[in-house]
Simulated scan of single mutants.
Amino acid sequence: MTFQGSLRELHLPDVIQLVAVSGKTGAFQLVKGREEGLIYLEAGRIVHATLGDLSGEEAVYALATWGEGSFRFLPGEVPPERTVTKNNTNLLMEAARRMDEWRVLNKKIPSLDHVPRFQVPEGKQGQINLNTQEWLVLSKIDGKTGISEIARRVNLPAFEVAKLLYGLVTMGLITLEEPALEPAGPSGENAAMSAVENGVAVDSDDLRKELHGLLRKLREEAQIAMGEVGWSVILRAYRRAKSDLESGRGTEAVQTMCQEILSQAAHLEGPESQRHLAERFRDVLAEWNAKVS
C-alpha cells in the first residue's frame, strides 16, 4: 500500500519520522501547486533533498514550512547524490523549529512568491538603523521580484530573507503584494509551439518555464495511466528530462521522456496500455498546441 496524504493533515517531520523508523530506502515526492520537492532516505536516514534551486538541508527546511500540498513515498528510489550530513534527529528538530517560526512569519509574509515594495512610513522621522543583511536585501527590491528570487540573488536561504523582510514590514518600510500574473506574449507562445514540434534547443527562461509545465502535465497523465507500477519509471524519466531541459536540450528532452515512458509502459503493462497512454500524450500535446497557437 502506498504511503501518501496531505500536508494539511500531517506535518512533514512527522511524515518522514514514520518512514524513517522502519529503516526504508526511497524518496518522498512533495507537490504544492507548481512546486515539487524530493527527499531521499537510505536505510531510514535522510541523505539528499531538492526543491527548485535548493538542495541538501536547506531544501528539507524549506519543504518543512509547507502547510499544504501532498506527499507520496516512492519505495526503492536511490538518491542521485548525497547532500545531507546531519542526522535525522538534528535535521528534523531544526525543521520543526522553522515550522514554528514560519507560523509567526506567515502572519505578515503569506508566501515566498510575494513581491516586496518600498513604502514611506507614516508619522516616522529620524534615522533608520539597519544591519548589513537588511541593506543587502533592500538593495534588491525593485517592486517586481519575489522573495525567493531575491534570496537567490543575495545568496541567502529564502527563510532567512523572509525573517529579514518580516522586520522591515513591521517597521513599515516595505509592503508585500501578490505576484502579477503575466501571460506569455505571442512571440514566446509561437516559439514554444515551434520548439515542441521541431525539437529545437531552448535559450529563453520563459520558454523553459512553459516546457517545464508541459513535462509536469505529461508526467501526471503517465501516473494516472500506469498507476503505482509505473511510479519509479515515470519519476526517473521525468527527473532526467528536467535535467536535460536545463542543460539546453530543449524539447528533445520532452520527446525523449515520452518515448522512454511509452517504452516502459509496453514492457510493464502491455501494448494496450501503451496505446492508451500514447493517446493521452497526444491529447496533452494537442491541448498545448491550442493553448499557444
Rank of each mutant, 00 (worst) to 15 (best):
G5S: 09
S6H: 09
R8W: 05
E9S: 07
P13E: 10
I16M: 09
I16H: 02
Q17A: 12
Q17P: 02
Q17S: 14
L18E: 14
L18Y: 00
V21D: 12
G23C: 10
K24R: 14
L30I: 09
V31M: 05
K32M: 00
G37S: 09
G37I: 03
G37D: 06
E42K: 14
T50E: 14
L51P: 04
L51A: 08
D53I: 12
S55A: 11
A59R: 10
A59T: 12
R72H: 08
F73P: 02
L74P: 03
P79E: 03
P79G: 04
P80K: 10
P80W: 08
T83I: 06
K86N: 08
T89R: 11
M93H: 02
A96K: 15
R98I: 11
R103F: 01
R103S: 13
L105H: 06
L105Y: 09
L105F: 07
N106Q: 14
K108N: 08
S111C: 05
L112E: 12
D113F: 11
D113C: 05
H114P: 06
V115I: 10
V115D: 05
F118N: 02
Q119F: 03
G123L: 08
K124Q: 14
Q125R: 05
Q125A: 10
Q127N: 04
N131S: 09
E134D: 09
E134H: 01
L136A: 06
V137Y: 04
L138V: 08
I141C: 06
I141N: 06
D142Q: 08
D142I: 05
K144F: 07
G146Y: 07
A151P: 11
P157Q: 10
A158P: 13
Y166V: 07
L168R: 01
V169C: 01
T170Q: 13
E177K: 00
E178I: 02
L181V: 15
P183G: 12
S187G: 05
G188A: 14
N190M: 13
A195K: 09
A195D: 11
V196Y: 03
E197G: 04
G199M: 13
V202H: 07
D203K: 11
D205V: 13
R208A: 14
R208E: 15
K209G: 13
L214M: 06
E220Q: 10
I224Y: 02
M226G: 01
S232Y: 04
V233Y: 08
I234V: 11
L235G: 00
R236L: 05
A237F: 06
R239C: 03
R239K: 15
R239I: 08
R240M: 13
A241R: 00
A241T: 04
A241F: 00
K242N: 15
S247T: 04
G250A: 07
V254G: 05
V254W: 01
A265Q: 01
E272K: 11
Q274D: 02
R275K: 14
H276S: 15
L277P: 01
L277Y: 00
A278W: 00
D283S: 10
A286T: 13
A286C: 03
